[in-house]
Amino acid sequence: MNAPMIYELRKPKRIIPNKKYPALFLIHGKGSNEQNIFDVVEGLEKEFFIFSIRGHIPQPPGYSFFTFKVYGQPDRDGFDEGVERITSFIDYAVKEYPVDRSHLYLLGFSQGAVMSMTLALTLGHKIRGIVALSGYIPQFVLEEYDIKPVDGQSVFISHGEKDPVLPYQWGVAAQEYFNEMKASVSFHSYQEGHTVSAKNQEDLTNWLMNDLKGKG
């Protein structure tokens, strides 16, 4: 079966036969690529099958999962296609690799966080948890998409209070929405801009490992 998207895989060095592993799907930011986001999850390949997905839209110097009509409003055609492609890729990965369907996580930065939160809402309990770093939920997703129940879904949202690209309040609004939907939300703010600090990386790593062990 051919993969529906270009990706890079990292996994434990020693694979135990017949064992199912948790999976972590990485979704990069605007103009980046599937290799640039691995630093954020360094070391987690000891526990997870980590799939880093390349955006389907060329956007030098890299790729994107959607473009914008105006600030904060993704172009709907590219966005919808991105959601469909990533959904298909998750289905592909589950079929082709020894991953545990009950332990699927998404992690994204910037527009990758936008896609992660959107997919959490469209896939519902198919997704165990998400890590959304400096993102937001587009209004048309809330108004027009088929939103699935996410009660109990594990959600880590972080945002820099000095973010000059995507306002801090957008991250606050996202965590408020997931709280209203009865997800299990962990919200973290940092005195940073549009970036992932060392403390942010430490916090998300600890959160992922605790969630994995605590709900196993």
Results as ranks from 00 to 15, higher is better:
2 N>P: 15
5 M>T: 15
5 M>Q: 10
6 I>T: 11
7 Y>H: 13
7 Y>C: 00
11 K>M: 14
11 K>T: 03
15 I>Y: 07
18 N>T: 09
18 N>A: 14
21 Y>R: 12
23 A>V: 15
25 F>T: 08
29 G>H: 07
30 K>D: 09
30 K>E: 13
32 S>L: 10
33 N>G: 04
38 F>I: 15
40 V>A: 09
41 V>W: 07
41 V>N: 04
45 E>K: 15
45 E>N: 13
48 F>G: 02
53 I>A: 08
53 I>Q: 01
54 R>C: 05
54 R>D: 01
55 G>R: 02
56 H>P: 00
61 P>C: 02
63 Y>W: 13
67 T>E: 14
74 P>R: 07
74 P>K: 07
79 F>R: 07
82 G>I: 04
82 G>M: 05
83 V>I: 15
83 V>D: 04
87 T>W: 00
91 D>L: 05
96 E>P: 02
96 E>K: 10
98 P>C: 12
100 D>C: 06
101 R>K: 15
102 S>T: 01
103 H>K: 15
103 H>S: 12
109 F>M: 11
109 F>T: 07
111 Q>K: 08
114 V>T: 13
114 V>M: 05
114 V>C: 07
117 M>Q: 14
120 A>G: 11
123 L>P: 03
124 G>A: 01
126 K>A: 08
126 K>L: 04
128 R>F: 14
131 V>M: 09
134 S>A: 14
135 G>I: 01
137 I>P: 00
138 P>V: 01
142 L>V: 00
142 L>Q: 10
144 E>L: 04
147 I>Q: 12
149 P>H: 01
152 G>M: 10
154 S>T: 05
155 V>P: 03
156 F>D: 06
157 I>A: 03
157 I>M: 13
173 A>I: 00
174 A>L: 06
176 E>G: 06
177 Y>V: 10
177 Y>I: 15
178 F>G: 05
180 E>A: 15
181 M>V: 02
187 F>N: 05
188 H>P: 04
189 S>N: 11
190 Y>V: 09
190 Y>G: 12
192 E>H: 01
194 H>R: 08
197 S>P: 08
200 N>K: 08
203 D>H: 15
204 L>C: 12
205 T>A: 12
206 N>E: 11
208 L>A: 04
208 L>E: 00
208 L>S: 05
209 M>N: 14
212 L>I: 08
214 G>D: 08
215 K>I: 00
215 K>S: 11
